[in-house]
Design a protein around this nucleic acid. Structure first.
Lengths: 227, 227
DNA sequence: CAGTGTGAACCTTTTCACAGCA
DNA sequence: TGCTGTGAAAAGGTTCACACTG
């Protein structure tokens, strides 16, 4: 089947497949099976096949997928045939790290500008780019069509910054501030909350500990019974 | 209904509810409705009610939820009645930022140790903690029961580090390296991949641009028709 | 009577299992 | 023969709508 409206769950996995495919290509492989892809992405092979089938029929029955061609198709589908400009707003701890992060450039993103509300920071050069004032945002976005906003401010400033980004024409926002942003329809917002991830882990850690506890007690009881 | 096996999707939202609740409590509110919680968390109220009902019946019909009591219950459910120690492995750009991130401490996590494989880095103090050699991991984990590992190494080192963490007794790992980790059953792994988030945004950005394009053409056609 | 708690309907996602093709 | 592509079944998650209660 040809494309049309790829499921959200699939969109979320395509980047993961892509990276594994690129790594595989670098190692010189030219063909791969869904089974192999599944192992590399930590999912099962039926999922890989169904996901890839949403892009079109790019596999060969009995053989597998052509790595280079599949990379091309996934890139095209994700809109990674062009480099996207990103604007980092808030150059504190995290913004600093992201400005220096080489992984963005390697995977299709170009840091176009750094912005901070703090006048004292303006002008400072981080990762080869000067920090600019917040007022420059409309101009920055105009000069970088399709620019995506990356919010690294404290929670208290994040909504204001988001509004500013939207007013400047940004339609995609990646939010690292620990707050739920409101945005008008047509604007995509994704959130990464580091503490939330740890809290989710805490839930399972606690549950596993409790489980281990039950097992231990169970064994104790069994031991008693054995006497 | 009382607890027993809370759905994964709910577990993922509880931390979000928790933060909004804490903020609300700080502002002095003592009671809240599912409608209000929904607005704060960016979901709908039915979802909030169903999610909270998994913890037990902690609301009052016709009134709402007691903020302080609900905070307590959510914390208890997530296992946040204790502070969890975390060990950051890989003190590069990102590890540095995380070591200095105050948000962890504010939400129940205590950075117990920093570790790096680079001998040159060992001993350097970051965020008040000395960087320790990788060999210290078993000892660190023994001294900090329930410690969670945070992997901030390059992709090439991540699996080795994960194996080491698991061998040292860690059962919860937060992975920032852009690679899918293999871990034995019983070990929880969560992954945060910054470029993946941007790539997902790129997909929708591209699709929206295409959509706007269709609309624009549509209007152009309409304009022609009008002539 | 306002707002929770929850069956039931609905929708999305995952998994199964196998027909069909190189 | 081996592996893709995909209907169909199952599982999981969301939303509806309303009985129930403080």
């Amino acid at each position: 089947m040809s494309a049309r409206s790829i499921p959200e769950a699939t969109v979320g996995r395509l980047p993961v497949y892509l990276r594994a495919l690129v790594e595989m290509a670098e190692n010189g492989a030219s063909t791969t099976s869904s089974e192999e892809r599944a192992a590399a992405a930590g999912v099962n092979s039926a999922k890989v096949r169904k996901d890839l089938s949403h892009l079109g029929s790019y596999g060969t029955r009995g053989v597998g997928y052509d790595v280079a061609y599949l990379i091309h198709q996934v890139r095209r589908e994700l809109g990674l045939t062009q480099d996207w400009p990103i604007v980092i707003v808030g150059v504190g701890n995290l913004g600093h790290a992201l400005a220096n992060y080489r992984g963005f450039a390697e995977r299709g993103f170009r840091t176009a500008a750094l912005v901070d509300a703090e006048p004292a920071k303006v002008g400072e050069v981080v990762g080869g780019l000067p920090i600019r004032p917040v007022d420059d945002l409309p101009e920055i976005v105009r000069a970088n069509p399709g620019a995506m906003g990356v919010i690294c401010t404290p929670a208290s400033e994040a909504q204001k910054v988001a509004d500013l980004l939207v007013a400047s024409g940004v339609r995609s926002i990646l939010n690292f501030a620990p707050v739920v942003l409101q945005a008008p329809p047509g604007v995509s917002v994704r959130k990464v909350d580091l503490a939330v991830e740890l809290q989710i882990l805490a839930f399972y850690e606690q549950r596993n500990a409790a489980l281990a506890d039950v097992k231990r007690r169970g064994r104790a009881v069994a031991d008693l019974a054995r006497v």
